[in-house]
C-alpha cells in the first residue's frame, strides 16, 4: 500500500459538519489534556472517550483499525522497553541488570496510551475534515493563501511521489537491485532509486508550475472561495463546550 495522506472519510455527522477551526481547537485541547493527565487509568478514559466520539460520528472500525496498524509498533515498543527505564514500587521480575517494577510498568502503559490517544485525536480530525476545509481553516486563521496551497499541493503530490518511488523500486529490483547490509551500505544502494525518483519529482514540479500558471494562479483578480467555511451557532456552542470541558478536567486533575 502506498503512502496515504487523504484520510478523510466522507460523512454528514456532527463532527464532520463542525467548522474545521473549532476542530483544530479541539485537537489542541485534546493534545494538551493527553499531556496533563498523569495516570494510565486517566489516559485509558481519554482514549475511550475519543474512540466513542469517533464511533458515534460514523467513523468505522476499519478506519480505526487502519490507524492502529500504523502506530501499533510504536505503542508496543514503548510498552515493552519503557518499563526497564523507570523503576518504582514492587519488583515483578529481575534478570541481571534488567528490573521490571510495577511502577515502571504502569508508567509505560500510561505513556503508550498517551501516544495512542494523541494519534486518535489527530486521526479523528483528519478522518472528518476534507483537505479543502483544512486549507481554508489555515487561510481563515490568517495564513496566506500560498501557504494553504502549498499544504494542499503537498498532501496531493506526496502520494504521487510515493507511488513513483514504489514503481521505480520495482523496476530496479527487476534489474537485480537489492538493498541489504548495514545502514551506510543500504543508503548507497538506494541511490539508483532515489536519483530516478528525484528526476521524476522535478519533472512533476515543472509540470505543476505550468499547470498552475495556465489555470490562473497569480492573475490580478482577487481570489474568491466557493463554499467558504463560516462559524454557525452550533460551532460556537461546540467551541464553548469543548473549552469548558477542558477547564473542568484540568481543574479536577490539578485538584
Amino acid at each position: 500500500m502506498g503512502l496515504v495522506l487523504d484520510l478523510y472519510r466522507p460523512g454528514r455527522s456532527w463532527l464532520h459538519r463542525l467548522d474545521p477551526r473549532v476542530k483544530l481547537w479541539g485537537v489542541a485541547l485534546g493534545l494538551i489534556l493527553a499531556f496533563l493527565l498523569p495516570s494510565a487509568a486517566a489516559q485509558a478514559l481519554l482514549l475511550l472517550a475519543v474512540l466513542l466520539l469517533l464511533r458515534s460520528n460514523g467513523i468505522k472500525w476499519d478506519a480505526l483499525r487502519w490507524l492502529w496498524r500504523q502506530i501499533r509498533f510504536l505503542f508496543l515498543l514503548i510498552l515493552c522497553l519503557q518499563p526497564f527505564f523507570t523503576s518504582a514500587g514492587e519488583t515483578l521480575f529481575a534478570l541481571g541488570p534488567l528490573r521490571l517494577t510495577l511502577g515502571g510498568a504502569t508508567h509505560a502503559l500510561g505513556l503508550a496510551l498517551r501516544v495512542l490517544s494523541m494519534s486518535f485525536i489527530t486521526g479523528g480530525f483528519l478522518f472528518t475534515t476534507e483537505q479543502r476545509q483544512l486549507v481554508r481553516a489555515f487561510v481563515r486563521l490568517g495564513f496566506p493563501y500560498p501557504w494553504g496551497l502549498t499544504l494542499s499541493l503537498t498532501l496531493r503530490f506526496l502520494p504521487a511521489i510515493s507511488s513513483l518511488f514504489g514503481t521505480v523500486r520495482e523496476a530496479q529490483a527487476a534489474r537485480g537491485w537489492v538493498a541489504e547490509g548495514n545502514i551506510f551500505r543500504r543508503a548507497r544502494e538506494y541511490l539508483p532509486v532515489l536519483i530516478a525518483v528525484t528526476i521524476g519529482a522535478l519533472r512533476m514540479g515543472d509540470q505543476l508550475t505550468l499547470a498552475l500558471a495556465a489555470r490562473g494562479l497569480g492573475t490580478a483578480a482577487e481570489r474568491t472561495t466557493w463554499r467558504d467555511i463560516e462559524m454557525r451557532p452550533a460551532d460556537w456552542r461546540a467551541l464553548v463546550g469543548m473549552s469548558a470541558a477542558f477547564l473542568v478536567v484540568a481543574a479536577v486533575n490539578a485538584g
Binding site: L208, G216, T219, T224
Partner: peptide, 30 residues
Amino acid sequence: VLFQDAATQLFTSAVEDEVAWGLEALGTAP
C-alpha cells in the same frame, strides 16, 4: 491547455474542487 499527462495538472483533493479552482482564481462570485 490540456497537458499530455493530465494527472500532473490536477492538483486539488476532490473532483468538484478541481473544476472550481480556476473560477476561484479568476475572482468569480461564489
